[in-house]
Write a protein that binds this DNA or RNA. Structure first.
Length: 871
RNA sequence: GCCCUCUUGGUGAAAUUGGUAAACACAGCGGACUUAAAAUCCGUAGCCUUCGGGCUUGCCGGUUCAAGUCCGGCAGAGGGCACCA
């Protein structure tokens, strides 16, 4: 009897509507079951879903469906990170309104997500560009302002003088604006900042509590925060310049202080600016440095340049000596104090600089194993000290004695503190988060500038500050700024005519709290704090590693800020984090550049793969395997795959083979293999279903029936364990094993030659199998579940409970090694005593010859594992 | 330059965390069914071998009864950060 092929084109839409109608994925905040919040990073509505989304959301969906089956009230929402530059670019290029473009894309992508059968609660959907969402974000901003979490200060931006607009770093190409091609200028603008640096220490130390985060992400965040301890001290100027009597520096290596041979300050350092007022050459030098500073390549290749100011400072270590002060291109104003002392003996960069400008090189220590007279040690190459290295210090100020770098650092700090030259200081690399963007398509900052009252927050009753829709992208500059009347508004304080802030917020703000909003998305305040506290932290967050730093750090900061402003009481937003690998595909290159996989035919002969162009049969080069991207044209459209093979096949392929944290290579053969398995499961169950649907479900008593039951129960247990660990590829392998085991017994059921015992064990196994594959292939699972005679939906069924007695064996096959090499196997009762195992192992035919009639020197018995006989 | 990760058959990988290396799949090869093909099913498969065995997890060394797994060194690949003091 043959079974009709499984037709995904009919089955998948059928079950999608059935789930929708029964609202099986809508989650209530009032539910007695324990809650479980699984979230995947929400997409930017760029136009179409790509394979990376499919992988990300499939993993999340498996977890959501599995947890639902395990009795949790699962929250699994979806939304749109919908503000951002691409919408404005599309507006300028295609003359389409950013709002229209965005909502159109959302509609397309929502439709695509629905065809994948994800168990999402669409009733909670929102886009960050919805007025209802950004209205609450404006409220949050004002609350944070009240709480002292927001500040306003100057920051430098890339300015396009032709388009009269601020450019993001990615819009600056070779130092020129991407549209106008005009050389980019640097401008200082007053901007809004969240004072994330106030939380630097907390954000750093709390990383230790995130034990379900990848180590890699925690390390990256720790490095980004960049805590260091060093010495901040002042070098006295020989002659004061205006108000400047000394030069404040910061160093993490105070133990090299004695080797200082010059001072260097940033071109933007106040002292440099002061000097530049009367020094044309210095002004020119600073301009020059700034110009070459725009392009990254130029920066990397730029050699160390300095400008000797002629000023000198007193050397605090050796009285009477002085050091020259340079303005140098490699000193950053943003870090530390914008000034350093240079120690060429122990720093590569300082060494390069000193060599170029003929400055003295004084070692402050020699390697501990240096044999000669320490004073004769010549530092040809800078020796960069490590903190644990044992060294002989030389040329040190009196009283500073130590054996290792770490001790040297503390000793020098103590010395400097005692002489009141400076003090020990902790520095963070982390900078405050500038959120002002001079763009239209973002959340307006609810601030008003009044000529008499200054900077005034918009009154809460006047919120939301809504983006105007009648805007003009033809004129250069920010549309909000040149809108005819939008910015005109009365001052909330004095009522006089005033102007709105025309800057909008960084889109990272939108994504820093959306996970909290999902817990009560229609609330008239940013959160319903009870709902937020009940659901948060997110139990499992899944997304790409590219968000390891900014998005995740900002979200962690926002949770703290929202706790401080009373919107919730959760400081860490994501208890579990998983970063999945990319979807990659090989590339095909012809004379006209890259070719898309759909245009290419790949053949294999004698292990050699060749690619030809379908259109004309011309030869193509099979290139490297790369992340799917438009530029490499190696993109496979999920829609095409769903159409040809179905969503279940795409989902199954995404979960098979590659561990989820690693990149997965998309191959035609792999997809076909996945589809074969879909069909195989269908044939297995549909073939036997006419017999099985009316059978009682029972555990087999003996023989094949018992084997079937054992396999089904064991798989239910093991797949559960694997899914808990997000080891989807292992779960998939176990399901293959189960299906392999079931093949023959199901054949005999189908052919009508199975015993009653076998029939009922197969009936139960078929139920089990349907429910086990349900998180991964939900449509196929429903269809199987139904034809097996069940009248519920698999999507709401509990995970099959395994019988503990069936998953453990009475006997074990122990490998028996002699001197670490396997020589035999021993079948023995599971709880056999150690000495019994030893006795039986030594009596084995394959072991006896190695004993040469004598005794074993030693026998290691590890119960249920191995026996090793040492002779 | 600093920090992190990875390296197992032709390929993607697995290995109960120190206990039988290569489960499962893809590609391959042989066969069955078919006029033929597709689909399906069965079998086979790390390398060498004098058929007794021997060797094998990037390379070298160490610890251990036992190492893919732990330690030290080296090489290669990938990622993050950075003129960051």
């Amino acid at each position: 009897m043959s079974v009709e092929r499984y037709n995904h084109r009919v089955t998948e839409p059928k079950w999608q509507s059935a789930w929708d109608e029964a609202k099986v994925y809508e989650t209530s905040n009032k539910d007695d079951r324990p809650g479980y919040y699984v979230l995947e990073m929400f997409p930017y509505p760029s136009g179409r879903i790509h394979m990376g989304h499919v992988r990300n959301y499939t993993m999340g969906d498996v977890v959501a469906r599995y947890k639902r089956a395990k009795g949790f009230n699962v929250l699994h929402p979806m939304g749109w990170d919908a503000f951002g530059m691409p919408a404005e670019n599309a507006a300028m290029k295609n003359k389409v309104h950013p709002k229209e473009w965005t909502y159109q894309n959302i509609a397309t992508m929502r439709g695509q997500l629905k065809t994948l059968g994800f168990s999402l609660d669409w009733s909670r959907e929102f886009a960050t560009c919805d007025v209802e969402y950004y209205a609450q974000q404006q409220r949050l901003f004002l609350d944070m302002l009240d709480e002292g979490l927001v500040t306003r200060k100057n920051a430098r931006v890339n300015w396009d003088p032709v388009d009269m607009t601020v450019l993001a770093n990615e819009q600056v190409i070779d130092g020129c604006g991407w549209r106008s091609g005009a050389p980019v200028e640097q401008r200082d603008l007053t901007q809004w900042f969240f004072k994330i640096t106030d939380y630097a220490e907390d954000l750093l130390t709390a990383l230790d509590s995130l034990d379900r985060w990848p180590e890699k992400v925690r390390t990256m965040q720790a490095n980004w925060i960049g805590k260091s301890r060093g010495l901040q001290m002042s070098f006295e100027l020989c002659e004061p310049i205006g108000e400047f009597t000394g030069l404040e520096i910061y160093t993490t290596r105070p133990d090299t202080l004695a080797g200082a041979s010059f001072m260097a300050i940033a071109p933007e350092h106040p002292l440099a600016l002061e000097l530049a007022k009367t020094n044309e050459e210095l002004t020119q030098f600073a301009t020059e440095v700034r110009r070459s500073g725009t392009s990254e390549e130029a920066l990397e290749k730029a050699e160390k340049l300095g400008f000797d100011t002629g000023l000198r400072v007193k050397n605090p270590v050796r009285e009477g000596e002085t050091l020259p002060v340079f303005v140098a291109n490699f000193i950053l104003m943003d870090y530390g104090t914008g000034a350093i002392f240079g120690c060429p003996a122990h720093d590569q960069r300082d060494h390069d600089f000193a060599t170029k400008y003929n400055l003295p090189i004084t070692a402050t220590f020699v390697p501990a194993d240096f044999a000669g007279d320490a004073d004769e040690f010549v530092a040809d190459e800078p020796h960069v000290p490590t903190k644990t290295e044992k060294v002989h210090y030389i040329n040190q100020p009196a009283g500073v004695e130590h054996a290792t770098g770490a001790e040297g650092i503390e000793a020098t700090i103590n010395w400097a503190e005692a002489k009141t030259l400076g003090k020990g200081q902790v520095q963070y690399r982390l900078r405050d988060w500038g959120i002002s963007r001079q763009r239209y398509w973002g959340c307006p900052i609810p601030i008003i500038h009044c000529d008499s009252c200054g900077v005034v927050p918009e009154a809460r009753e006047n919120l939301p500050v809504v983006l105007p829709e009648d805007i003009d992208f033809e004129k250069p500059g920010n549309p909000l700024d040149h809108h005819p009347n939008w910015k005109q508004t009365p001052c909330p304080k004095c009522g006089d005519a005033a102007r709105r802030e025309t800057d909008t917020m960084d889109t990272f703000v939108d994504s820093s709290w959306y996970f909290a909003r999902f817990t009560a998305p229609r609330e008239n305040t940013p959160t319903d704090s009870k709902a937020a506290n009940d659901w948060l932290p997110v139990d499992q967050y899944i997304g790409g590693i590219e968000h390891a730093i900014l998005h995740l750090l900002y979200s962690r900061y926002f949770s703290r800020a929202m706790s401080a402003t009373g919107h919730m009481k959760v400081s860490e937003p994501f208890a579990g984090l998983f970063t999945q690998g990319m979807v990659v595909h090989e590339t095909y290159k012809g004379p006209d550049g890259f070719m898309a996989p759909v245009e290419v035919k790949v053949e294999e002969q004698d292990g050699k793969r060749t690619a030809t162009l379908l259109a004309d049969g011309s030869d193509l080069e099979i290139g490297s395997i790369e992340k799917m991207s438009k530029s490499k044209r190696n993109v496979v459209d999920p829609d095409d795959i769903i159409d040809s093979y179905g969503a279940d096949t795409a989902r199954w392929f995404m979960l098979s083979d590659s561990p989820p944290e690693r990149d997965v290579i998309w191959t035609e053969a792999g997809v076909e293999g996945a589809n074969r398995f879909v069909q195989r499961v269908w044939r297995l169950i549909a073939g036997a279903a006419p017999v099985l649907k009316d059978c009682t479900r029972a555990v087999g008593e003996a023989g094949d029936a018992l084997t079937v039951s054992k396999a089904a129960h064991k798989t239910a247990m093991l797949v559960a364990e694997d899914v808990e660990k997000l080891a989807f590829n292992k779960a998939v392998a176990r399901i293959y094993e189960l299906v392999n085991t079931l093949a023959k017994p199901f054949d005999s059921v189908t052919n009508g030659c199975a015993s009653k015992d076998l029939q009922s064990s197969c009936a139960q196994a078929a139920d089990f199998l349907s429910l086990i594959v349900s998180p991964m292939m939900p449509h196929l699972a429903e269809e199987c579940w139904t034809i097996l005679g069940n009248d519920t939906m698999a999507a709401v069924e509990a995970w099959p409970t395994h019988d503990a007695g069936l998953v453990t064996e009475d006997t074990v096959m122990l490998p028996v090694q002699v001197n670490g090499k396997k020589r035999a196997e021993l079948l023995i009762s599971k709880d056999a005593a150690k000495d019994e195992i030893e006795k039986e192992a030594l009596a084995l035919d394959a072991v006896v010859p190695y004993l040469n009639g004598g005794l074993a020197k030693k026998v290691i018995v590890v119960p249920n594992r191995i026996v090793n006989v040492v002779v």
